[in-house]
Amino acid sequence: MAHIIVVGNEKGGAGKSTVSMHVATALARMGHKIGTLDLDLRQKTLGRYIANRQTYLARTGLDLPTPEYHELPDIAADQLAPGQNKQDVALGRVIETMHDVCDFILVDCPGSHTRLSQLAHAMSDTLITPLNDSFVDFDLLAHVDGEGEEIIGPSVYSEMVWNARQMRSEAGMSPIDWVVVRNRLGTTAMINKEKMQRAIKKLAKRIGFRPAPGFSERVVFRELFPRGLTLLDLRDIGVTSLSMSNLAARQELRELIKALDLPGVKPDF
């Protein structure tokens, strides 16, 4: 059975699709069979990212490891049993199809609460939650006092993950390994950054996730998207001398893959 990785939170702009594409491509480059699914049915950033990659490879003749992309199937009304939800059936069907042929299934969720996202969270073996390094984004996980030091209580997204965990427990499934990834970390020590670190550490123990370092804010991510490329592709497209920023970003990706501790995966890139 494939290991299901879900990338989600309920806020846009946290880097979910960038994390999704880089994790998926890293796994493909390490020889793992990986299928992907984008549940943001309106924007489909991950879907467009992979489509951009396929177009670029067709134009240049390059052959780079690429994650497979799957769409939700269209379910006709006469295929539904009484009381069945069309989206539930569509998601279950595509996941079932991918299970038999993939080592990993990566699902990119929208930055909002939807039925599909909630169902995907309950299916996840590993849940990755990218979080910008600010208390604006931290509020998605928990409410804090005015000084940013004391946690008052969990917020909406944490409650949704708790419900997903309950669903898995009641179904006799293994617990979700929840990893909160701190994105857009500043390069200098700042008071806000230190407060965030303390708050994340406290909350991790309280609601049960593992914190992990993510990506710093880098222009290269925006430049790679139109061609569907990742940091790991630069040498293959002729970039022989990587900048210090690009080398640092590759190391960040390596550390993220290592922190995820996915079954059978060693970050050998």
Rank of each mutant, 00 (worst) to 15 (best):
G186M: 12
L185E: 13
K266W: 06
V89S: 00
G146S: 02
Q197W: 01
E255C: 13
K44V: 10
S17E: 01
P267H: 10
P73Y: 09
D40T: 12
P263N: 14
M1Y: 12
I75L: 02
I75P: 07
A171Q: 11
N246M: 12
W162S: 15
I5W: 05
A81S: 08
V6K: 00
S20A: 15
K195H: 06
D63F: 00
L234H: 11
L91K: 07
I5K: 03
A249M: 04
F225D: 05
S241Q: 15
L140A: 11
N246V: 03
L37H: 05
L247Y: 03
R182D: 06
T188C: 11
G238R: 05
V89D: 02
D236L: 08
L231C: 05
Q197R: 10
Q84D: 09
L57R: 07
E71A: 10
M196R: 04
Y49D: 14
L231I: 07
H121N: 11
L242A: 08
T66I: 08
N192Q: 15
A2R: 10
D268C: 10
G61M: 11
V219L: 10
L224D: 05
H143Y: 10
E10C: 08
R42P: 05
E170W: 00
K258V: 06
V220Q: 07
K258C: 11
L232Y: 00
V23S: 07
L231P: 02
K258R: 15
